[in-house]
């Protein structure tokens, strides 16, 4: 990211001297040229995280682990085991009573199919289209933010939100798990026991991996966002597409396209909990996300830089 912005800056880099009378440049010392790239990005972050909508999404995400933890606690308070009521819950739910750390994995597994990507869809879909429908896009562009620079700032912000959303779930789950259940040595899926500290590290790895899993959707949402002047339409289209893809992903007859769907390897993060770590699906997941990011990121760029801004 920073490298991309630096390149852009260098490409643009014919500073003050070129201006005939330098009214604007004279006041700006050379030092400010080095930090400007961060200015828009910082502003973008503030704008995103000061919205009530963003905070509400994060609050919902933080509530999921609490709900799951409390439910498991209540169900097992009489000494019974999980699932005695019949049916199965999300992955790892039966391990929670042994180790609160597993609430992190359970919560991520529970929110990854829908809650997490939906919140990404809302933020990514709204990123450009929301500014267009509010009319603020034209003022940012004549400021001039530069179209590539604005798009990069938007995309980076969506990525930061991906990480923030995932960490919100993970941290909320970790706290709830530690409060309601015992902690200690973690028994991995492969049966090996590792110390709690290493368990925490794996937790962090899983959270980062989940955040990266959302990259493809983030790029897709950003692209959709450049297609329309309506923030609501872009959000709805992104979330609608997510649901459609998730449905396609469950239809066995369509297995030929499954490996190319962005959510197909989402649950591969569980492989981090093996010893040794089973990399196959994790790498495939990263590959798919990289592919989606490259394709839809370029499409968003091509569309946004070539488009007439009429809103």
């Amino acid at each position: 990211m920073s490298r991309a912005e630096l390149t852009e800056e260098r490409a643009s880099g014919r500073p003050g001297a070129e201006r005939p009378d330098g009214a604007a440049a004279a006041g700006a010392p050379a030092r400010s040229r080095a930090v400007w790239s961060l200015g828009l990005f910082r502003s973008e972050l503030t704008i995103t995280f000061r919205r009530w909508r963003t905070l509400a999404l994060l609050a919902v995400l933080a509530a999921v682990p609490i709900l799951v933890g409390v439910a498991v606690r209540i169900e097992t308070s009489d000494g019974g085991s999980i699932g005695s009521g019949g049916g199965e819950g999300p992955a790892f739910i039966s391990q929670i009573t042994n180790n609160g750390l597993f609430l992190v994995f359970t919560s991520l597994a529970a929110t990854l199919p829908f809650f997490l990507p939906m919140s990404i869809g809302v933020i990514a879909g709204d990123s450009v289209a929301g500014e267009a429908s509010a009319g603020t896009l034209r003022y940012l562009l004549v400021a001039p933010s530069g179209r590539t620079r604005l798009l990069l700032a938007k995309f980076t912000t969506v990525l930061v939100f991906c990480l923030a959303a995932t960490l919100t779930v993970a941290v909320s789950a970790l706290i709830t798990g530690a409060l309601l259940f015992p902690t200690g040595e973690v028994t991995l899926l492969s049966g090996t026991a590792i110390p709690f500290s290493e368990g925490l590290l794996r937790c962090l790895a899983v959270a980062v991996l989940v955040a990266v899993s959302l990259l493809g959707l983030a790029a897709l949402g950003l692209f959709i966002s450049t297609l329309t002047n309506s923030g609501i339409a872009a959000m709805a289209a992104t979330v609608g597409l997510l649901i459609t893809v998730q449905i396609v992903n469950t239809i066995p007859q369509l297995h030929a396209v499954h490996p190319f769907l962005f959510p197909h390897y989402w649950l591969s993060f569980a492989d981090v909990l093996r010893d040794p770590v089973y990399w196959d699906d994790i790498l495939k997941n990263l590959g798919v996300q990289a592919l989606y990011t490259a394709v839809f990121g370029s499409a968003a760029w091509a569309r946004f830089t070539g488009r007439d801004i009429t809103a």
């Binding site: 643009s12 604007a24 700006a28 040229r33 400007w36 933010s145």
Partner: peptide
């Protein structure tokens, strides 16, 4: 205004 000013790469953040 701070937001719009941040969008301008030539604007000096110090002022």
């Amino acid at each position: 205004l701070l937001r719009y000013d941040a969008a301008d790469p030539t604007a000096d953040p110090a002022t």
